[in-house]
Design a protein around this nucleic acid. Structure first.
Lengths: 254, 254
DNA sequence: CGCTTCATTGATCAATCTCAACTCGCGTGG
DNA sequence: CCACGCGAGTTGAGATTGATCAATGAAGCG
């Protein structure tokens, strides 16, 4: 599907699209079809025609690996995914958990050197843009570039944070911080509500282990510990932070 | 000191400047005064006047911390430095070891949110550019932007690599990989020569520990192990890789 | 409904940390 | 010139964290 000047047919899922694309434009590149359309209506600026395609992947499916990224820049519209580095002994390290509105990696806008793969955690809807079109558009539009730089700083800052966590923190801290970071990111997207805070939490303990550099056995023990301490409730893919103060203390202390 | 149209007075250290700036322009932003001058001569393109100042810091001195970065983008001209995150218990994690030609962080070109400090490892000569001038220049010059994107991809890829190392590798592997990464980066700069490969290596074991998420006590033991195994020679701030194949094997295995 | 993946728990093991003592080289101030 | 203190490095003993192995039950999925 190619988008020209924002002229798009409505389809039955319009409402859902608008919801998630509203999230998306707040966080990322403003290049999505719906966004461009809206922008055109508001500002009168002529949107740049960017070829894009929408895809759906079921949970646990690989969305893309090295070879797939020659000209593709994927953006998560809906669902959770993870970018994962795999080692020769088949152990895995999650580099980043991708939430709706996240571009898989800002570096992909410029080059395709990715030593990792992207895997769906839940069912995922995502779009693929073509770098060969997106990149020139960026260079022409300082406002898009400004958005990009924000996404990039955010991405790098999270990577640095992860380095510190993996290098210098205990299992308890790593897990608590992973969860709190996700809570924060979800809250920004309106995906965490209530008092006490509550949200969908589709991560398996395997994912938590892969993200924190631990084994899933140990993750299970630590989570049980958290539950016993009345800090969180976590079951049936749903998470409640029962004692935010206490949990924060576990996450930051040392 | 402000550079206007590449008109600069020669000074006694011109030769040294040219040497390191040749390295620098190969790796980073091409905004340095010497580079701009040379570029002007070659291409006839009018260099952009960028205000910049040269500084010197002795080993172990902090080059900048959070607050210093409001409008400053430092680039290492000469010597080794490290960007370091410090935790509340005063333990430290090195995010990146900075070699001549490295910009401290490409994210600094867009924003000053840095939760870390930059510390000189050896005596360091560095330049500070002003973001308020550099950033607009970037947006006007696609070629500079292209250079920037390369530096950024490189930076992010190294960060991702470090995440995997800290999350999934043993002490031996982490240390060997740190050293091999440095060897590679130094070689690109012409700072590692010979057969077997030999180079200046000013890192203290403390730095290695801070970079690999280990304690310096354990680093000492692992290095002794490497020495006993005839893999490396490391003394008096000088490193020789005696058995490159064997050392690579230690670094990559699992 | 049968199979795979996920989660829990206990026992044991291994990697790394912590603590401590000692050496060495270096720079500083008396 | 010497004494001193400090940071860096080495080494050993013992403590701790988290990994590995194994067994079991529950949950998700075709």
């Amino acid at each position: 599907m190619t988008v020209q000047l924002g002229l798009i047919k409505k389809d039955p899922s319009t409402v859902a699209l608008q919801t998630t694309c509203a999230i998306c434009s707040g966080f990322e590149m403003n290049v999505c079809q719906s966004t461009l359309q809206a922008e055109w209506a508001i500002s009168g600026t002529k949107p740049i025609p960017i070829q894009q395609s929408t895809h759906i992947a079921p949970a646990r499916r690989i969305i893309c690996r090295d070879g797939d990224l020659h000209d593709a820049v994927p953006v998560i519209c809906d669902g959770w995914a993870a970018s994962i580095a795999t080692l020769s002994d088949s152990s895995r390290q999650i580099l980043s958990i991708l939430l709706p509105g996240d571009i898989v990696s800002t570096a992909l806008l410029f080059d395709s050197r990715g030593q990792y793969l992207v895997e769906a955690i839940t069912d995922v809807r995502y779009r693929i843009f073509r770098r060969s079109e997106l990149k020139p558009a960026l260079f022409k539009r300082p406002d898009l570039l400004e958005n990009l730089s924000k996404a990039w700083i955010e991405e790098k800052s999270r990577a640095d944070q992860l380095i510190v966590d993996l290098g210098r923190r205990t299992a308890d801290e790593r897990i608590a911080r992973l969860i709190l970071n996700l809570v924060e990111r979800l809250a920004k997207r309106g995906m965490a509500r209530g008092e006490p805070i509550e949200m969908d939490f589709p991560l398996r303990q395997r994912h938590i282990a892969d993200a924190t550099g631990l084994t899933s056995v140990h993750v299970s023990k630590v989570l049980s510990e958290f539950r016993r301490g009345g800090l969180i409730k976590l079951r049936e893919r749903s998470l409640t932070i029962l004692d935010l103060g206490g949990f924060r203390r576990v996450a930051n202390m040392r």
